[in-house]
Design a protein around this nucleic acid. Structure first.
Lengths: 118, 118
DNA sequence: ATAGGGTTTAAACCTAGGTTTAAGGTCAAG
DNA sequence: CTTGACCTTAAACCTAGGTTTAAACCCTAT
């Protein structure tokens, strides 16, 4: 598959794929005679996986740590669970902080409402 | 007050204050004969206010919208309440998204746990 | 053969909110 | 009179994750 095809299939942009390759997140593509990148359809799954992981809040660095782009198989299940658990804690922290912000904003609104009622 | 003094008093860095001035978030400082910025202690409150607002999740652009750096008085209470209410909704969205991420990560962990138990 | 679409590269650009650096001026103390 | 702390500026740099652009090459259809 050419880069445009696989990009469409995976729902990402071609430039993003080149960027991932440059960053070592995916292995360097094979090349056709013309120099075009030539992908196995298998990479579609990997690209979707990366996209999902990013949506879950993982940075590219974290994604690389779990599944190095060198084509090696993923890290052990145990390690993956550890990383997921860490991320879970981080997400909990995000939620807690956001809730606190929410309360403070609500308090501010209440205060301004009082002021306006004068 | 010189910039270092007010920075310390407000709990921000001097470079941040210069940056705010450049961005028009605070009015240009008066200058002494030597060219040094010369601040009224009143600005301490403004700087603290900006810092707080940022912690509440407001961008500098939003902060400027509420209180233009040109030295004008703040926008009406009504407008401020509107902006705070918008931000409240945005924070709610952040919370909702984070919760969804959390559930998905938990599901992944559960799945991996099952796999590992095999 | 030529127009169009797709591909290649490196390098510049983008957001946001600053920090860091370089090169210099100022001020108070010793 | 010099040392050290502070101030000035513009401009470069930083993170993160890309996008955009320029200049060139390739392929297919007409």
């Amino acid at each position: 598959m050419k880069i445009g095809e696989i990009a469409k299939a995976a729902g990402v942009t071609a430039s993003r794929i080149r960027f991932y390759e440059k960053r070592g997140i995916i292995p360097p593509a094979l090349r056709g005679e013309n120099g075009y990148r030539d992908y196995s359809p298998d990479l579609v799954g990997t690209l979707r996986y990366i996209d999902q992981a990013q949506r879950l809040g993982f940075t590219l660095r974290e994604i690389v740590d779990v599944e190095p782009g060198t084509g090696e198989h993923p890290v052990s299940c145990t390690v993956a669970i550890e990383l997921l658990t860490e991320k879970l804690a981080a997400v909990d922290e995000v939620i807690a902080e956001a809730k606190e912000r929410k309360q403070r904003i609500k308090a501010l609104i209440a205060e301004l409402d009082k002021t306006e009622a004068l």
